[in-house]
Design a protein around this nucleic acid. Structure first.
Lengths: 150, 150
DNA sequence: CTGTATCCTTAGGGATACTG
DNA sequence: CAGTATCCCTAAGGATACAG
């Protein structure tokens, strides 16, 4: 009897567990960060992120995130040999969480990168605006992201 | 030359990476959920969560979260043979993130648990209130948690 | 350059025994 | 019961070769 095999903890259970099963791994949120803040859309761009994800893991995460409908994979009309990865609604709705995460890290990282925006690629005054007009800020980031996808 | 050994990606870098290095594992947020919403404070209570964390992993996560100052470990004055685990400020400040996570899951889980609050132990109308008066709701949850710790 | 496939290592973590 | 220690296995993921 194989009692080792654990079922996925996901759907129908606790919302925290549900979320963790989808993006609670070492790389998924990094990829989303790259899409949202760095404007990345292509395989090679993700490969080049500072954290150096390896190609097999990248492929597997993109596939999983696509299968979970967090991102969408479409053929690049400018270059048929590659795809464009962009956020689906389900991925866009992770932006508040991503912002909370950034805010928390900025508050507690003892060695912050002092210069420039709190996360490279993000609008200036990100955290201030997060409190002043949270929803507007989120809308603006999403709009900016979509404009790049034209 | 051992090029395999990866350094921790943490401090001084991207805020997303910083956060993931502290609580971006399979269990940390589950433990925080148990503290915040289920009122758990003792080792055995964490062991009994639905996700069945094993005892060695629990010990290792509690130690890491304590070393990162996310939680605080104090001796239980009622029973000197055990400890009480509670949130430090750094842990309390993860509550917004936890709430965003729950909101996201409730929106996208195809098989929600229909009855009762969105997460067992949480106040009713959690999500509505999250929009109406986010800060007040967060304050209330924290107050409720601290009262249990008296 | 965009990905896929293969091989291999290791950290995460499960089962369980054990100590106070 | 609270927590530690040990043993072992699996799955995440790193290096690299390869195909289109």
């Amino acid at each position: 009897m194989n009692k080792r095999k654990q079922p996925a903890r996901g759907s129908g259970k606790c919302p925290v567990t549900f979320a963790l099963d989808i993006f609670g791994d070492k790389w998924s949120l990094i990829i989303l960060r790259d899409i949202v803040f760095k404007g990345k859309r292509h395989y090679g761009e993700f490969l080049n992120s500072a954290e150096k994800i390896s190609t097999n893991i990248l492929a597997s995460r993109l596939a999983k995130l696509e299968s979970e409908a967090v991102i969408v994979k479409t053929r690049d009309t400018q270059n048929l040999s590659r795809f464009v990865y962009s956020l689906a609604d389900k991925g866009r709705d992770l932006l508040p969480l991503l912002l909370d995460m950034i805010e928390w890290s900025v508050k507690y990282d003892p060695q912050p990168d002092a210069s420039g925006p709190v996360i490279s690629g993000a609008p200036d005054r990100l955290l201030e605006r997060l409190h002043e007009d949270r929803d507007a800020l989120i809308a603006e980031i999403i709009t900016g992201m979509e404009e790049r996808n034209q």
